[in-house]
Simulated scan of single mutants.
Amino acid sequence: MYATQPLQPLLAKEFNVSMTKASSFTAVIMLFLAISPIIYGYILESVRTRTVLKIALIILLITNFSLSLANSYEMFLTIRTIEAIVIPAILTGAMTVLAKDKENTKLNMSIYVAATVFGGMVGRVFSGFIAEEFGWRVVFASLSLALLAAYFFINKIEFKGDANLVKPKLFDIVHILKDRRYIVIYTLMFIVFFVFAGLLNILPFRIKELLPQTSETKIGLLYLGYGMGILISLTIHKIIKFFKKELRVIMAGLTVFLISTLLFLNSDAIILFWTVFLFCVGMFTVHTVSTRLANSMRASQRGLTSGMYLSFYYIGGAVGSIFPAIIYDKFGWDMTVFMFATLLVFIFAFILLSRKLFKAYD
């Protein structure tokens, strides 16, 4: 998913396109992750999980190798769009397998979140290194080899269950949104992931602006801070215990997120590197606790509330992967950072004004 992110300045130069067009390589996957609960809920209502995983992995393996052969922007984006369609199927299938282990579901999901965060970090860091040492085309060829290994492991899984995908109905969605707490949580995550995805998406271009000779390896290392998400996801119960209540943790996380966002106004590359760590601490604190809230506020329809949460989350990421690039291109870095900060101040105030809705969590 994220291997293209540190390569965007390189790919923009390779295909002779703008920063905004290069950002679409990540945005297209975010978009399909947002609408996948609807697509797969209706098209793949009852299918074998193992079958879904195997077919999706084969398609992803072929498309990644095809990316290494792409020679135009249009071809590269078309292939990425095909990948965007199958990636949600893999995530859904993997979560289904883990959820079937009733005795260890919470532990499995914590490790699943940590694994996806680790994958996001490694994908960014190693793609930069491989691109510098061997060329950007080798990045995608190597991912095909990794997917071949994944296919081998999937064949070792003895699992015959169905995917159990949720088919959302308009009435059910409206009914959930009548609970104002969900409007608050969904708005929160739309804005938080808009800022997070938006800033990290244009950060490579900012580094290139400050230090034109910066290598792809060094740009990839910027994303090491993403690993803080692993630490947060595995220790969130201790953080909540320290603050006593979930909403207090969200407010603390937002405060850290806002402060770190403003620190990106600095033009020192070393400070920007360490700021990413603080930025990820704030974001993943808010995200992890918000996920827990979205899954615990209703005893019923948890599949739908979780699906809607992910939809708002990834729509924020999709819009955030494109719109800030336009602002940065037109008005510069400082104005873009101030836009992010303004949105965070808004959502902070919105949650403060809505605290009475969360008496059990405040």
Rank of each mutant, 00 (worst) to 15 (best):
L53Q: 12
L61Q: 05
I62A: 13
I62C: 10
I62R: 10
N64F: 11
F65M: 10
L67G: 08
L67K: 11
L67Y: 09
S68V: 04
S68C: 07
S72C: 06
E74A: 15
F76H: 08
L77N: 09
T78K: 14
A84M: 04
A84V: 01
V86Q: 07
V86A: 12
P88T: 00
P88N: 02
T92A: 11
A94D: 00
M95R: 07
V97R: 07
V97G: 10
V97E: 08
V97M: 08
V97W: 04
L98D: 03
D101E: 12
K102D: 12
T105D: 00
T105M: 06
K106Q: 13
K106Y: 06
L107I: 01
L107A: 01
I111L: 07
V113G: 01
T116M: 07
T116H: 01
F118W: 05
G119S: 04
G120H: 09
V122N: 07
F129I: 14
I130A: 07
A131E: 03
A131C: 02
E133Q: 15
G135R: 13
W136E: 02
R137S: 04
V138G: 01
V138P: 01
V139T: 09
F140C: 06
F140Q: 08
A141S: 13
A141T: 03
S142R: 05
S142C: 06
S144T: 11
L145C: 09
A146M: 11
A146H: 01
L147P: 04
L147H: 09
L148S: 12
A149C: 09
A150K: 03
F152G: 02
F153L: 09
F153R: 02
I154D: 01
N155K: 12
K156G: 00
I157V: 04
I157A: 00
E158L: 04
F159I: 01
K160F: 08
G161E: 15
G161S: 15
A163S: 15
N164E: 15
K167E: 10
F171R: 14
D172H: 15
V174F: 12
V174L: 13
V174Q: 12
I176Q: 09
K178H: 09
D179E: 14
R180N: 10
R181C: 10
R181T: 08
Y182W: 01
V184C: 01
I185Y: 04
I185L: 15
Y186W: 12
T187P: 07
M189S: 11
